[in-house]
Amino acid sequence: MSNDAISALGANWLQSLSIDIIRYAVFAIATWLVLWVLLAGVLKHRKIRANTPPARHLIGEFLISLRSIAVFSTVGLSMFALERAGHLPGPSLAAQWGAVWGVVSLVLMIIAQDTYFYWTHRVMHRPKLFRTFHRRHHRSHNPSPFTAYSFDIAEAAVNAAFVPLWMILVPTIWPVVGLFMLHQIARNTLGHSGYELFPAGRDGKPLLGWLTSVTHHDLHHEQAGWNYALYFTWWDRMMGTEHPEYFARFAAATRQSRAAVAAEVA
């Protein structure tokens, strides 16, 4: 490889890294600022746990996340390099299939990642693998928006591998991948936010029961043997790994909010 080619790859990697850091920082910092600072008083009855992680813990999560982002950016750059070398025809093929396929491929990509995440996540919880792959993430016993990318390097690599696998197997245009990335960081930061933001029905159960709520993933950080899913509750329910107290915990988080609103109105 020529020096010019190496320099171009380096420049592209730095550009990709900068975009990924900005995207993470915008969502993580914005979620923290809005929920933990600006609306902390308004949402205090939606806070899942009474205690809050110390500032040094949040800073540590943010710094570890930068390492994970470097892994993601490196994997992303390799996909662009494959396409330029003519070894990744999927994006150009998908561009010929129109906007409808773009929407369909985005939905399928999100569903596929949920399946990929459930099973890789569950495997990483096996005792022989946990220390290498997943221990760092569970040091955030009480999660924050900055927990979203706080991974061991091995776990970051496993998570990053989904997009290349998908792009190789399923023709998908790059703008769809961009929307997919925005969706996953938004759901990740909100899912670790510590505030139950999802609506409840009159029976206290999640109104959108097929989606993982904040309480759903918070319980996983509290008791690691349950709730492995990322976006949807399907796999946990089919495999019997949804926490038995999930509905009660969710109802408690939303019931106190409804009671507080009723008291203020009265």
Rank of each mutant, 00 (worst) to 15 (best):
94 A>K: 11
98 G>L: 03
99 A>E: 06
100 V>P: 01
101 W>A: 09
104 V>I: 15
104 V>R: 09
108 L>N: 03
110 I>A: 13
111 I>M: 12
114 D>L: 03
117 F>W: 09
117 F>C: 03
117 F>Y: 14
118 Y>W: 11
119 W>C: 04
120 T>I: 11
124 M>K: 08
127 P>S: 03
131 R>M: 09
132 T>D: 11
139 R>D: 14
139 R>P: 00
140 S>V: 00
143 P>W: 00
144 S>M: 02
144 S>R: 02
145 P>Y: 08
146 F>M: 09
146 F>N: 03
149 Y>Q: 09
149 Y>A: 10
150 S>F: 08
151 F>A: 02
153 I>P: 00
154 A>K: 02
156 A>K: 06
158 V>D: 04
159 N>W: 00
159 N>C: 10
160 A>S: 13
160 A>Y: 01
162 F>C: 00
164 P>I: 08
165 L>C: 12
165 L>F: 13
166 W>E: 14
167 M>C: 12
168 I>G: 05
172 T>C: 06
172 T>M: 03
174 W>D: 04
175 P>S: 07
176 V>I: 13
176 V>H: 07
176 V>K: 07
178 G>A: 14
178 G>Q: 13
182 L>T: 03
183 H>V: 14
184 Q>H: 10
185 I>V: 15
185 I>R: 07
186 A>W: 15
187 R>V: 13
187 R>N: 03
187 R>M: 10
188 N>A: 15
189 T>N: 13
191 G>E: 13
192 H>K: 00
195 Y>D: 02
196 E>W: 07
197 L>Q: 05
198 F>K: 05
